[in-house]
């Protein structure tokens, strides 16, 4: 008998007399903030509150939050790269044309063909979009879609700038986010920069992932 068959047989034997447990009831909230279930365009004020909560929670976990209009984005990105002292930036396929147009002094390198891990380690920064952001937890979710790149791209460089398109990428809660995500894609959930609680259970920012996380909320 294979171990597969043996384990399955043991499970069935263990459960032979087990009663059917109580049914699963999903009576918990689908979101905790007011207005979270209302589509953005219908109640702009309440959607703005959700975006504010996202900004607040991102900042609470030491992400640097910036807000700007589309036209001002190239200048903001250039400033953030300069402030970090970046000399090179890795660029994912599909990052909108022109976003890095004003980052003149920074070497821009597309991840096509893919950079090796060692090459990536030589880059100071990476700029990406995201799939969505979750306000209640202050979380960005990347699904390797256009403008996001493969998972290693946002991991190895020490500085990640992530641009969130607020009109349609912010959801209030975890339940809302999962319903929008495609599990067949590789997903990375990011809530603040790399951190650890391993020394005396106290949170310290900055271990292996990017130690600086800039989030741009694009209006």
């Amino acid at each position: 008998m294979s171990s597969r068959d043996a384990v399955l047989a043991r499970i069935r034997a263990a459960l032979a007399d087990a009663p059917e447990p109580e049914p699963v009831v999903r009576d918990y909230r689908t979101a905790h903030v007011r207005g979270a279930n209302v589509p953005a365009k219908h109640v702009p004020d309440e959607y703005a509150a959700v975006v504010d909560l996202l900004a607040e929670n991102l900042a609470d976990y030491r992400a640097h939050v910036h807000r700007c209009a589309e036209a001002a984005l190239p200048a903001l990105l250039a400033r953030l790269l300069a402030e970090h002292g970046s000399r090179s930036v890795a660029v994912p396929p599909g990052l909108p044309q022109g976003w890095l147009a004003e980052a003149g002094g920074v070497r821009q390198h597309p991840d096509e063909p893919p950079l090796t891990a060692r090459e990536l380690d030589g880059f100071d920064s990476v700029v990406t979009t995201c799939r969505l952001a979750v306000a209640e937890t202050g979380t960005l979710v990347l699904d390797a879609g256009p403008g996001q790149g493969r998972r290693a791209l946002t991991l190895v460089p020490d500085h990640h700038i992530c641009v969130v398109h607020t009109p349609d990428q912010v959801v209030a809660s975890l339940p809302q986010s999962l319903a929008r995500l495609d599990p067949t894609r590789p997903l990375t959930w990011i809530s603040g920069p790399s951190a650890t609680s391993d020394i005396e259970l106290d949170r310290v920012e900055g271990v292996h992932g990017p130690r600086t996380l800039d989030v741009v909320l694009l209006e």
Partner: peptide, 21 residues
């Protein structure tokens, strides 16, 4: 566990993906 709204990183993967991981 860590008393956070969300831990800094969560990775989800389904089998293998060409060119990623």
């Amino acid at each position: 566990s860590t008393a956070e709204r969300m831990n800094p990183y969560t990775t989800m993967w389904t089998g293998t993906t060409t060119g990623d991981g």
